[in-house]
């Protein structure tokens, strides 16, 4: 049976592998080419795009990092992402707990209000938000990036954490109550540690979405020194579009942190994206 089946199965598997590999290659080749370009100097560009650099030029990174201010953009991106993710996790653990386990009046209405934030595109927020930020004197400050992204994360995170808290077995809650836990200590001592896997997935998703946010930063930030990486990259492209290697090095700087987070937490990210999508 085995020997008879093998020859007929092997080619079919092989062709599937070939097709999958082609799509995989198509997904990663542009990135690899960009990485190679980032180490080349202008004279080397004319050679084959996917050839290794004749000499490895790390100057492109130096130039992007200091002259083109990508070091500053990098710090801004880190500050915004850490603040947004940190504040959002705290707020959505609270709100998810309230929505998932506590009983109070008006919950359905609040749920719908929060859902609006998930369904309405950000384009329908940005125009009045711009006016609001100027009125609050927050325009052109880091807060004009942090607060709206916390608010966006709040609607996603509340649904995410609410789903988790709804699934908490009633026995655990009962046991904690019998042990004399207040609702606050039960949340942080019992439920929060249990929620780690769910929170981790959310953190990974929020990290990547916040890191990549573009329109908000483009509208709110005029000062070059406050830009985050994606907007810095877009403006570099506008000014130095002929210096392909410099732009490539900057692109790598923007992309690598998200890729590192992705490779470490790929399972959380992929399953998070998929379950998040199906839940919507």
């Amino acid at each position: 049976m085995n020997t008879a089946a093998k020859p007929s199965i092997l080619p079919r598997n092989l062709s599937t592998h070939i097709i999958l590999s082609l799509f995989l290659l198509a997904a990663v080749m542009p990135l690899i080419g960009t990485l190679l370009t980032s180490f080349k100097d202008p004279t080397d560009l004319a050679a084959s795009p996917f050839a290794l650099p004749r000499e490895w030029h790390f100057e492109n990174y130096e130039k992007a990092w200091s002259q083109a201010r990508f070091g500053d953009y990098f710090v801004n991106s880190i500050v915004v992402v850490v603040a947004v993710v940190g504040i959002s996790v705290f707020l959505t653990v609270l709100s998810g707990y309230a929505m998932g386990l506590l009983k109070f009046r008006g919950k359905a209405l609040i749920n719908i209000m929060i859902l609006v934030g998930l369904m309405v595109p950000f384009e329908a927020v940005i125009i009045p938000l711009w006016g609001l930020m100027r009125d609050l004197k927050l325009y052109n400050t880091i807060w004009s990036l942090i607060l709206p992204q916390v608010a966006l994360s709040f609607s996603f995170g509340t649904f995410w954490m609410q789903a988790y808290f709804k699934g908490v077995p009633g026995d655990i809650v009962d046991a904690a109550v019998i042990d004399g836990c207040t609702s606050w200590s039960m949340l942080w001592r019992v439920l929060f540690p249990m929620a780690q896997p769910s929170i981790l997935s959310m953190v990974v998703l929020l990290f990547i979405w916040t890191w990549n946010e573009f329109l908000l930063v483009l509208v709110m930030i005029q000062k070059d020194s406050l830009r985050t990486l994606p907007v810095g990259l877009a403006s570099l492209q506008g000014r130095f579009s002929t210096d392909l290697s410099l732009v490539a090095a900057a692109t790598v700087i923007v992309t690598v942190p998200t890729l590192i987070v992705y490779f470490i937490f790929q399972r959380q990210f992929i399953s998070g994206m998929i379950s998040g999508a199906l839940r919507g």
Binding site: L31, T34, N212, V231, V254
Partner: peptide
Amino acid sequence: LFIPQVMSTVAVGIIWRW
């Protein structure tokens, strides 16, 4: 295959410009 999902769209655009 999922890598393009994690990348900033700006980076994607610039990579494809190249």
